[in-house]
Amino acid sequence: MVLLVVQPLLVGGYLPGVPRRSGRYLHRWTGALLVTAVILHVAGLWRTSPSDMIDALLFVSPTLFSPWGGAAMWAIFAAALLAVFRLRGSLRLRAWRLGHSGLVLAAVLASVMHALLIEGTMGPLSKVLLCGVAIAAIAKVLFDLRAWKTLTRPRG
């Protein structure tokens, strides 16, 4: 969850002492770290309960938090894949900004739902606060960067 807070703050240039250009570079690396963390999370769960993981990955799990975790995972993977295509020049800026922003927003919201529904090691207050900060961070950056503004074409 902490990486979901840091990611938008890096790309938006909101972390003190981190210039915006460096923030964008670090955004890529923390994105790779986030994908790695999700893979390790899923691998660890697979190791402890393969049948539950199969149910979760197929969206047939009886637990309420599993579908949200699966949705968050696939949204994170898709956002990362779009970033790779953008770096290779395979995507236009407009399509990339809209797609990446939409997938990232979906990933954060699904991750928040997943985290809030799990009864785990985090206390309820710290979990709610961290989830609130993640939502606030993504909302602030998406609003300020106005990814959707690429839908309008200049007149003239």
Rank of each mutant, 00 (worst) to 15 (best):
M73I: 03
S126R: 10
R88C: 10
G69C: 02
L58G: 05
M113F: 08
H114V: 01
P8C: 09
W96M: 11
M113E: 06
V18L: 06
A32I: 10
V112P: 03
T30S: 09
D144I: 08
I135Q: 09
L45H: 14
K140H: 14
R88N: 10
S90F: 11
G44M: 04
P62T: 08
A106T: 14
H27R: 06
A43G: 06
Y14N: 12
G156R: 15
R21Y: 13
L129W: 13
A71S: 08
G12L: 11
F65I: 03
R153Y: 10
V35W: 09
V133G: 01
F143K: 13
R86L: 08
L40C: 09
G102C: 10
L57K: 06
H27E: 09
L117K: 13
L10W: 00
K149V: 09
S101G: 15
V128P: 01
V112Y: 01
F59G: 01
G44A: 05
L151A: 14
T36H: 06
F85G: 04
L91N: 09
G23W: 11
L130P: 04
V2S: 07
T36G: 11
V2W: 07
G69W: 00
P67I: 05
L117W: 09
F59H: 05
V42Q: 00
I135S: 11
L9F: 03
L129K: 06
F143D: 11
V6T: 11
L15R: 11
V141G: 02
R92T: 09
I39D: 10
R86A: 12
